[in-house]
Amino acid sequence: MTTTHHLETGGEKLELTADLAGNEGTVSLNGRARQISFQSLQPGWMQLEVDQQINQVYILDTPAGKQVFINGQTCLVTDGKRGPGRRRSTGGGHGPGMVTPPMPAKVVRIMVQVGEHVEEGQGLMVVSAMKMEATLAAPHAGKIISINTELDAKVMPGQELVEISREENNDP
């Protein structure tokens, strides 16, 4: 059975065509064909043989895609066609697109002001708690509508600290 997948990971897009019967077959990845066979050992743990090289692979399904661990490195692989909308998470336990602290914290630095245009990923403010400092980044590009806190304020997860207007987005 042949299937095609459009995957995204680490900012790269890859197209795969898989011709698999049971647990083995050929996968063409960006034009290059690989022989693979695989075996699920336990939920989330798989042996994956690629061109006769054995790999231990660990996978967790998440709402954002599959989190994959191989040989000490972790990445998120998403299906470019499917997937939960165009929201891209840059990591951390943040809620979907809300500028909120990941833990009860104190505001130690505010780097933007109302009316300013920000890019996705741009640092907005720094919060501090339990020896850790975290920079809250803009989940999408837009204009700062309001800053709902101030320096030295104690803030909680779930509080929206910065409101950013959404830019007109041409993506589907």
Partner: peptide, 11 residues
Amino acid sequence: IDLPCLAYVAH
């Protein structure tokens, strides 16, 4: 980067 994508398909 190929490996996690192959793993995705296998999974």
